[in-house]
Each structure stands twice: as C-alpha cells, then as structure tokens.
Nucleic acid binder design. Structure first.
Lengths: 98, 98
DNA sequence: TGAAAGTGCTTTGTTTTTCAAAGTTAAACA
DNA sequence: TGTTTAACTTTGAAAAACAAAGCACTTTCA
C-alpha cells in the first residue's frame, strides 16, 4: 500500500488556509475583513496566512477602492484552484476506502 | 454565513494523525511498524502522534506477541470513529459548496 | 556465548509553525 | 484636529513537529 498522506499539500494542513481556500473556491472575490470575520481571526494572523498563500501563488490580491475607501480583496489563481483540488482528491482517496 | 472551520477537529489538522486515523478506520488493527512504514516516519515521531491520539481516547493500544516476538498494535475506539467522522463531515460541508 | 539486530518506546534538543498584541501608514469621518 | 477604519508589519512567545539518540528487552546469527 502507498503512503496515504504523501499527496496532501503541506500548505493545506492549516485549518485557516484550508478555510480561506474553500471560501475562495466558491466566492470569486472576498475582502480582507470578510475573511477575518468569517474565520474569526486577528488581523495579523489572517494577513500572515494570506501572505503564505500569496507566496505560493495560490491566491491573488486586488487593491482597490470602494468609493474612496481602500479595499483589499483576494481571489484564487488557476494554480491555487488546481492545488486545492489535488489536495481534496488526495484526501478523498485516503478516506474513501471506507 | 458560519465560520467554516469551526467544526474541524484540531487533532486532525495534523496530516500524520489524519493518516493514522484513516488507516485505522479501514483496518481494524495495525502494528506500530506497519504504520511507521506506511507513513514513512521515525519511531519517535510516530510514537508521539500515537500518544496524542491515545490521550484523546481516539485509539487503543494492544500489546501482545506474534509467536515470541513482542508486537504492539493499535485500533480505533468508538469515540475515535465518531470524532473522525464528524471531522470528515465538517470538511465535506466546508467544501461541498463547490 | 557474544554480537548484532529488531521492537517500541522515551528523552533531548532543534526547527518550524502559529498566533496575539502592538505598532504603522494612510485615508475618512466628525 | 482627533478618532476610527483598513490592512498590514513586526515582535515575541508558545506550541507543535521532528530527528536523533538512548534504552530495555528479546531474538537471531556467528
């Protein structure tokens, strides 16, 4: 039998990054504050996880304005979508022997 | 919308513990060395994760012999099965908006 | 009989990760 | 002008992960 955890993506071991990704898969654009409130995180904590995902090029940042107020939103990249899907597939494969 | 990660079990954030549990769900008894080889871990690393799962009463240890050789095996407890299932349900719910 | 090897740990110490809290910058509001 | 909000960055501490070594015991091999 093959090592069942080998295909899991280390970046998605974190529940927070997992949460961010799953939200970005269904909503094509989400704001910083929305993420913060949904996942119940401090600014710093969220920012650092978003940073990790951005470094990996799994998400993209969009800096803009709502009226004259700054607004930062995030969206998933094709690479991110692919990596997330691969992770979910690995998870499913691991468990589906049930 | 509700916090999508709130129902995930912290003990299963770890890929290793996730792997152990998923193996124990399908095999009702697995030896230390089998786990070690399948998950490609050092003794100490595996032992400590098993210890964490045992503390939580998610798995049970059986110390016995195969012939005259000592043999330690592990199995999942009803509590463990339930907690694991709940985790998987939470995961699925989180993602199934796809 | 003595050496080597295996099983299943525990201990030790390092590295990595996580996180909260505080500080920061810039704009908006009152 | 002082306060609030947005979105960070920095700092530092705590927790988790991990490898390596040590250990007790047994078995196998020479």
């Amino acid at each position: 039998m093959k090592n069942p955890i080998a295909d899991l993506n280390k970046l998605f071991d974190s529940r927070i990054r997992l949460g961010v990704m799953s939200m970005l898969v269904v909503n094509n654009e989400i704001g910083f504050n929305d993420l913060k409130q949904m996942l119940e995180l401090t600014d710093g904590n969220l920012a650092s996880h978003l940073n990790t995902l951005e470094q990996a090029e799994f998400i993209k940042v969009h800096k803009g304005f709502i009226g004259r107020k700054t607004s930062t939103t995030y969206s998933i990249t094709p690479l991110g979508k692919q990596a997330f899907k691969a992770h979910l597939d690995a998870l499913e494969k691991m468990i589906k022997k049930l």
